[in-house]
Design a protein around this nucleic acid. Structure first.
Lengths: 232, 232
DNA sequence: GTTTTCGTTATTGTCGACACATTGCAGAGA
DNA sequence: TCTCTGCAATGTGTCGACAATAACGAAAAC
């Protein structure tokens, strides 16, 4: 038996986020716990144990775990329980290939779909990123605030609900997990910022073709940086 | 109360497909029933009613329904039950935009990842498609056999599990539903075949760049054909 | 020391029941 | 005739329990 995870005491309930049902609450809790590293990759999530810990029956736990699985944050092998995924470098690379395709398209669509107000907001994000670089120009590009992230904004600006959902709900959480496992890309900070700036410029020009190309190149650069440092 | 669906009597059990647990069996049944149109778009799937009809408790039904929801085949609004989605033209178009991005990437990757044997198999599929055109050159491109479909083969040949999973499990079923609702693209049959042939040629040349471009153009052509006939 | 067999345990699927929320209907009142 | 209120029906989340299956570990046989 694995050691008790005891997540409940470590998670501050996001105030408004308390949903009506236990299954949702559990899902939110586990999601943030995994993403924050409070539950480590490879760690086991025991259905009865979690039910016991949270004082609920197995049903809501079961559902929350299944949803985590759909989200790609945990794996479930029969009769061996569910574990937090510990993505390999290959998994990471696969994810980035698909991400290149998806965000490229998102960028193309966003070029015509986003409003000028949204572009201003995006510009502000890029600006703040630039200011942050002064402290550590060689550091990685850190995504600290989901709603104010460059990529997230574009994903939400493309006005394609399928695409937005895929990126925000499936890909970004998994990518974050991959990053926390394989390390951020040091030295990419400044380069990433410059690339963001060029993407923004193309968007403002409403040039979808160029915006897509630049975004794809941007993600491929990150992928290649990973490939260079990864297998070490 | 909606009329009883009575799916069980209409579905021939796919012989080997009987899984160990009821939830899986139910999921398979409902999936094929929806895709075959035995359960129509907009139709309600009643949890207790299905449980009763199949002689199981609500638990496995519940799980099967949730998985259908993940797959994007049904929607679930609180206290109103779950219904088979009836995709709008906009939904269809959104799906096709994302599909363009995904299959484009799949094609690019497949150009280097697929084996010569797989290419031969793919060529055979294209050839058979061409022979089928003799009977109705203006007809639509029909995908009658999932495992022997041109696009499916490429999706499986790209060697990117994330991409393959997305396409085969999420997109193709939803696309099929969209097609059955909005009609197939008449007159695209011959054009589609020619495009397939060119894509195949690029793949065989192992030219990922061109293969991607051709595939994207192929899907965009289908999208525009839909746009032209759709709003009528 | 290695392999096999057996018992234990963990995981999982399923069940039937209950309680609560919401919806929609129906009847009362204006 | 329209509106409001209360009730019934439906949908839904949750519970505790049981049984079956497969993995794990220990003891026995080779």
């Amino acid at each position: 038996m694995s050691a008790p995870i005891n997540v409940s005491t470590q998670i501050a309930y996001p105030e408004g986020a308390r949903r009506s049902n236990q299954s949702d609450a559990l899902f939110d809790m586990l999601t943030s716990a995994i993403m924050a590293g409070r539950i480590r990759p490879g760690e086991k999530l025991n259905e009865p144990a979690l039910a016991d810990e949270f004082g609920v029956s197995r049903a809501p736990v079961r559902e929350a775990l299944r949803r985590l699985q759909e989200k790609g944050l945990v794996t479930h092998v029969a009769h061996q329980g569910v574990r937090v995924i510990s993505p390999t470098l290959e998994d990471f690379l696969s994810l980035l290939d698909v991400r290149e395709a998806l965000e490229g398209m998102a960028c193309r669509l966003a070029a015509t779909a986003m409003t000028d107000v949204e572009f201003e907001k995006l510009a502000a994000i890029v600006e703040r990123h630039g200011e942050g670089l002064h402290s550590d120009p060689e550091g990685p590009y850190v995504q600290n605030d989901f709603d104010n992230d460059f990529h997230v904004r574009i994903a939400m600006g493309c006005r394609n609900p399928v695409l937005t959902g895929l990126l925000c709900e499936q890909f970004y959480p998994r990518l974050k997990l991959c990053r926390s496992r394989h390390g951020l890309l040091k030295g990419r900070g400044l380069a990433a910022w410059k690339e963001h700036r060029r993407i923004l410029a193309a968007l403002v020009e409403r040039d979808g073709d160029v915006a897509e190309i630049l975004m794809r190149r941007h993600i491929r650069a990150a992928r290649e940086a990973l490939l260079a440092t990864g297998p070490s």
